[in-house]
C-alpha cells in the first residue's frame, strides 16, 4: 500500500511542477493540434474517403504528442541529480515507475480529451458510435503505450540523444498495442454494428497491457541501479 501512496506522491509532485512551470502540457497540446492541421493539409478533409483515416489519425496524434511528454519525464529529473535522490530515498523503485506512469498518463489523457474532439471538429466528423466503447478503447490503448513508454524513457534518459532514441525504442515494442488499438478504433468509428470484433482487439491490447506492465515493474529495479 505504501508503494501506491509513494507513487501518488511522485505523480503529484510531477503534476504540480507542471502546473507551475506550464512547459510540457501546453507544448504537447499545441503540437497535437498542429499535427491535425498538417494532416488536413495533406489529406483533403472534405473528401468522404478521408473519414477512413480518422481512427489512425487519433493514434498518430496521441502517440506523437505522448512522445514529447515521455521524453521530458525522466530527463527533467537529471537536473541537479534529482534521479539519484529518488534512488537513494527510502521508496521502492516500483513507486518511481508507477509515479512517473501516473503523471504521464494523466497528461496524455488531458491532451487527448482536447485533441480528439478538435480532430472530429476540424475534419467535420459526425461521431455516432458508442461513446463508452470509444473511451474504453482510448483508455486501454493509452495505458499500454504510456506504461511501456515511461519505462523506455527511463532507459533512453541515460543517453545523450534520448529525444531521438525514445521513438526508436518505443515504436517497435509498442507495435502489437498499436495494431490492436487502431483496429479496434476503426471498428468502433466505422462499423458500430460489429462491436464484438472490437472487443476481441481490446482483449489483445488488454493482454499486452498486463504483460508489459508486469515486466516493467519487475525490471524497473535494474534500470535505476547506481
Amino acid at each position: 500500500m505504501s508503494i501506491l501512496r509513494n507513487a501518488l506522491t511522485i505523480a503529484g509532485k510531477d503534476l504540480r511542477a507542471e502546473r507551475k512551470s506550464k512547459q510540457v502540457l501546453p507544448t504537447m497540446l499545441v503540437f497535437a493540434v498542429l499535427v491535425i492541421v498538417v494532416f488536413s493539409f495533406a489529406f483533403d478533409p472534405d473528401k468522404e474517403s478521408t473519414k477512413a483515416l480518422i481512427p489512425g489519425l487519433i493514434w498518430i496524434v496521441s502517440i506523437f504528442s505522448a512522445i514529447l511528454g515521455l521524453n521530458r519525464s525522466f530527463i527533467s529529473e537529471l537536473k541537479n541529480d534529482n534521479i539519484q535522490g529518488m534512488i537513494i530515498a527510502p521508496v521502492n523503485s516500483i513507486s518511481i515507475f508507477l509515479g512517473k506512469f501516473f503523471a504521464n498518463f494523466v497528461m496524455i489523457l488531458i491532451v487527448q480529451a482536447i485533441a480528439i474532439p478538435m480532430l472530429f471538429l476540424l475534419f467535420d466528423y459526425q461521431f455516432n458510435g458508442s461513446l463508452p466503447w470509444l473511451l474504453l478503447t482510448i483508455f486501454t490503448g493509452t495505458f499500454g503505450f504510456v506504461g511501456i513508454g515511461s519505462f523506455l524513457s527511463a532507459i533512453a534518459s541515460n543517453s545523450g540523444i534520448s529525444e531521438m532514441l525514445l521513438p526508436l525504442l518505443l515504436f517497435p515494442i509498442a507495435t502489437p498495442a498499436l495494431i490492436g488499438i487502431v483496429s479496434a478504433t476503426k471498428i468502433i468509428l466505422r462499423h458500430p454494428d460489429q462491436i464484438e470484433k472490437a472487443y476481441g482487439w481490446l482483449q489483445l491490447v488488454g493482454g499486452y497491457d498486463i504483460i508489459f506492465f508486469g515486466i516493467c515493474i519487475v525490471l524497473f529495479d535494474y534500470i535505476l541501479e547506481v
Binding site: I148, L152, I155, N158, S159, G160, L165, L169, P172, I173, T175, P176, I179, G180, L204, Y208, I211, F212, I215, L219, Y222, I223, E225
Partner: peptide, 30 residues
C-alpha cells in the same frame, strides 16, 4: 550509448528481455 560498460550492459539486458518477449506478441497481433 556513451557511459560505463556496466550501465550499458544493464540497459541492454533489460531491453533484450523486453524485445524478445515482444516478438511472439507482434506475430500474433499481425
Amino acid at each position: 550509448m556513451d557511459g560505463s560498460w556496466d550501465k550499458k550492459a544493464r540497459l541492454c539486458a533489460v531491453f533484450g528481455i523486453i524485445g524478445f518477449i515482444d516478438v511472439p506478441i507482434v506475430y500474433f497481433a499481425s
